[in-house]
């Protein structure tokens, strides 16, 4: 199983309680960006193109904890920028863990071995290591040679120390399905708890605009990658989301499922688009024109199939109908029969 039972139980009880309360829009994963500065400059990333004085700004631990409490999501993902650059990251994580939030610290792992002593292994803390493929593909994507080797070494160290470790992988349109499958084997050989995969999103501000996937191409690629799935591959995400990537299911985006908070405030409408900021989560929910976003509603959303928009849609499907629930059970137990 890719996710511990305690985490699964927390998420299930949270979603069920939201549904029983009749809450139409609820957050599942808070995307907490405490800084934009990174020690890499990946060609596909649109998150780090800011003036120096903006890159120098950071959220304080208190701001992070307040956002987590206000939002109420059971899972907190900490992307960036590179979170391990933040000098108070261990305090931020410790405070979130004390609040019984499941924290996914997304890192390129360059600093992980140096900083690992600052963290305590916990069921609530997972290092989610950015790995975009085997050595050649990963180093090309992050625009620096040697990062793959550093990251795999750090993964081994973290696992040896008893930390939960997953990988997060963005697949671009030049991905070779056989190489991706070999990459999955290699990650499972390393002993990671699970893998997270997602297609890239064409950031307007990212330098590389040629490598992003069109919707149909996304479905083709993920169908090839996930065909005749090996039993040993464990994915740390909704099985219905994987079926969505393969084109077996259609979902509309639920951007409120993964709200984003960063140095500018609560970001409208989602992790990927920047249409403005508000100062509270409540204001985000109430003032965002949600009906203007999603496939068929907004040109910028046309080809997007990214996890931060659709994973929450898949989870919602699981708990909205018996067919969704049965589909989830079937996809979990028999992934090659759907």
């Amino acid at each position: 199983m890719a996710v511990p039972l305690s985490q699964m139980a927390t998420v299930v009880s949270y979603v069920v309680s939201q549904k029983l309360k009749g809450v139409k829009r609820y957050p599942l994963v808070l995307m907490l960006e405490p800084l934009f500065r990174c020690n890499l400059a990946c060609a596909g990333c649109g998150k780090i193109q800011y003036p120096e004085h903006v890159l120098d700004r950071r959220l304080t631990p208190e701001q992070c904890w307040a956002a987590a409490e206000e939002c109420g999501a059971p899972i907190i993902s900490i992307p960036g920028g590179e979170p391990l650059i933040h000098p108070e990251m261990q305090d931020i994580v410790q405070g979130l863990v004390q609040r019984k939030k499941y924290v996914y610290l997304c890192t390129n792992a360059i600093l992980l071995e140096r900083k690992i002593d600052e963290y305590e292994p916990s069921n609530y803390l997972t290092f989610s290591v950015h790995m975009d493929g085997l050595r050649d593909e990963h180093d090309l994507t992050v625009c620096r040679d040697g990062v793959y080797d550093v990251a795999t070494k750090a993964i081994k160290t973290a696992l040896k120390r008893g930390f939960r470790v997953t990988t997060n992988t963005t697949l671009f349109n030049d991905a070779n399905p056989q190489r991706v499958r070999a990459f999955f084997d290699e990650m499972m050989d390393l002993g990671v708890e699970g893998m997270m995969i997602s297609p890239g999103y064409s950031y307007e501000k990212a330098p590389d605009q040629h490598s992003f996937l069109r919707r149909h191409r996304t479905q083709e690629l993920f169908s090839d990658v996930l065909a005749k799935r090996k039993r040993r591959w464990r994915f740390n995400q909704s099985p219905l989301f994987l079926e969505f990537l393969e084109g077996k299911r259609e979902y509309q985006c639920t951007p409120w499922g993964n709200p984003t908070y960063n140095i500018f405030g609560w970001q409208k409408p989602c992790y990927l688009l920047q249409d403005g900021y508000v100062s509270s989560f409540r204001e985000l929910l109430e003032s965002t024109a949600w009906e203007q976003y999603g496939v068929g509603r907004n040109e910028k959303c046309r080809d997007c199939m990214v996890h931060c928009g659709y994973e929450a849609s898949a989870v919602e499907d699981t708990f909205s109908s018996w067919s969704g629930f049965a589909g989830t059970v079937k996809a979990t137990l028999f992934p090659n029969m759907t």
């Binding site: 400059a41 003036p51 090309l140 625009c143 040679d145 330098p207 590389d208």
Partner: peptide, 18 residues
């Protein structure tokens, strides 16, 4: 007035350099 940070290093330049 400020440098347009989005028009930074291009993918093509990286591939060429590599």
């Amino acid at each position: 007035t400020g440098q347009d940070t989005a028009s930074g290093k291009s993918w093509e330049a990286w591939v060429r350099k590599r």
